[in-house]
Nucleic acid binder design. Structure first.
Lengths: 202, 202
DNA sequence: GACATTAATTAACCTTTGTTAATTCAGGCC
DNA sequence: GGCCTGAATTAACAAAGGTTAATTAATGTC
């Protein structure tokens, strides 16, 4: 279900025996999305926990004026949930959409967590999902209070250089808290400067 | 150790028996800080989980140029940790300082979590700390991608109207991702407009 | 290939923010 | 009270971002 090197990583990371890890994976089923497919729609109440084997998922919010604001992007080897539903038990305000061909491992969040709670061997694995999301959100907040838009863009490129080939600029712009026009100007400034920056072209 | 109405709230919220809740509190000890006291210093590696009974804590980062950036504010009835230490096992990049007379309940994070892990009755309580922090960080991120600085300021006032009496503007400014000068201008714009806004004076 | 559609860039203009510095305000202290 | 210190405000200017619209580029479709 997962490549061997990743299996080994998780065995080590979660400090589990192979059969324990397998019992975890047995709770999950594979789900394939093609580019543009909506995984979770705004208003949905399905509480899934998903691991991205490959691909790219965009979480966005539809504003009253009809504009979409990208709230987060998730890519291969990351977990995500419709957190409105899973954490707060409410209908999702967000839509989760595949930006490219994407393969997920998905499990029902509650079933999965109940399973983890039954055995304290899993306590580390259980914390992992929440902590890794928390870590990323913290980093996000830090980037907003510490960096200006240009610096946030550079940091994103550093974190995920190929994101510009995989996701349209207009979605990246709102993720950074700016407009597409402004991102375009930032790109131009950087191109004219001496800063080396990942290029567009697919 | 805690007022009765809050005890009842937590009994209900965590779905625990009184003696179970008490066994939790027995792990914590009270700590009193006066205005200006540093609770956790940059570079510290003490992994504490703290609950704020009363008061206000500012978490800030010292930049190379000597300026302080407020990363988060925590107030009464909220939990916080030096998350660099607790989540990532590294020295804290941040300093946590009391902005006013503050009373904490503090416990060693690892001891506390190990205790919670021993009994699945506590699984809900255990998730609570992580989930409530995650929720707040998510909200923070949303406010940065969806709102402009003025709107973020208004939202903060809505969340915690008395924050302006309790915390100097310069700290609030960096929390919002702007400069004190800019916050001052925003305040002026709002004062001259018809928007009702909590006033300064102590 | 021609056409339609959408994304990205560019331009023009206005607003806001950052920066630096001067000024005013408020609180603490003798 | 008068003085000191730091916070907040104000001013002046430069830099950046938002908005709208026009133009160009890229992509998909027939």
């Amino acid at each position: 279900m997962l490549e061997e090197n990743k299996v080994n990583h998780y065995l080590d990371f979660f400090d589990l025996a192979p059969e324990e890890l397998m019992s975890l994976f047995s709770l999950a089923k594979e789900r394939v999305l093609k580019e543009g497919d909506v995984y979770v729609k705004e208003g949905s109440t399905t509480g899934k926990l998903a691991y991205i084997k490959s691909g790219l998922i965009r979480c966005f919010l539809l504003k009253e004026n009809g504009e979409e604001t990208t709230v987060l992007l998730r890519w291969e080897d990351q977990f995500f949930t419709a957190y409105d539903t899973v954490l707060f038990n409410q209908a999702s305000r967000f839509t989760y959409q595949a930006m490219e061909h994407t393969v997920l491992l998905e499990a029902d969040y509650q079933v999965f967590m109940d399973f983890l709670n039954k055995n304290s061997k899993f306590s580390k694995a259980k914390d992992y999902f929440l902590i890794s999301m928390l870590a990323e959100m913290m980093e996000r907040v830090e980037s907003f209070v510490l960096l200006n838009p240009e610096e946030r863009y550079l940091r994103l490129l550093k974190d995920k250089p190929n994101i510009v080939q995989r996701c349209p600029d207009k979605y990246i712009a709102t993720l950074l808290g700016i407009t597409p026009v402004s991102l375009s100007r930032i790109r131009k400034r950087l191109a004219n400067s001496s800063v080396a920056v990942p290029q567009k072209m697919k």
